[in-house]
Design a protein around this nucleic acid. Sequence first.
DNA 1: ATCTTTGGGACCGAGT
DNA 2: CACTCGGTCCCAAAGA
Length: 248
Amino acid sequence: MACAEQDKLGQAFEDAFEVLRQHSTGDFQYSSDYKNYLAFINHRSHIRGNSNSYGVQPAEEPIYNWRTVINSATDLYFEGNIHQSLQNIPENQLVQPALLQQKGGKGRKKLRLFEYLHESLCNPEMASCIQWIDQTKGIFQFVSKNKEKLAQLWGKRKGNRKTMTYQKMARALRNYGRTGEIIKIRRKLTYQFSEAILQRLSAPYFLEKEIFYSQYVQPDQGYLSLNNWNANYNYTYANYHELSHPDC
DNA sequence: ATCTTTGGGACCGAGT
DNA sequence: CACTCGGTCCCAAAGA
């Protein structure tokens, strides 16, 4: 992230803090929250890496109130989506986060591949196709013999006409590598969920924002988990990070 | 040398 | 209608 943009966001956070301080009845601590905000900013810049190397357009519109700061952070954190970060979030989503589960009030969001994979990992009947290597770290591996079967089931679940293959499914997984949702481990057929995705998939969605808020506002846990993920991500994408913007 | 796995550009359909 | 997102298709290269 460019230094100027970071400064603007830092100012935005200060403004947001002032609003929070005036309205909050809790023990909102400026120093720790700002530190977490910076942790988030670092996290974001690491995920974005060098925008040129990804062809990502730089610099979204800055944000100037605490709801959008925190909401955008939350959505970026959970959605892992670098393209739509820091956009304005409608007020009602803050009040009723569960509505995020729906699109235009027309029922559930479409199933994402990583959701399907996590579901399969939790289903003992799919153990012949996909297995946890280290569940706490979110590392999993496809079973070479039956990975095509899993892919076919994924294709059917999506209602595809043509049969899904592992090759095509793995291509989708590689796209997750760009956004950091799932990264490839240097081991055959092995991948790793991001910590954010792991938390998201193991917690009821309607609690997600509240969980994030509590981490964000009462710091250490969220701060460390972001750093842990950064460490992991840095390992895999070291080459990209060498090209990232220098520190301010 | 062959099969498997990984990488990536181009494209597509749904949603906004 | 243009744009974004989340895949999907297909070919090529690397690895076992």
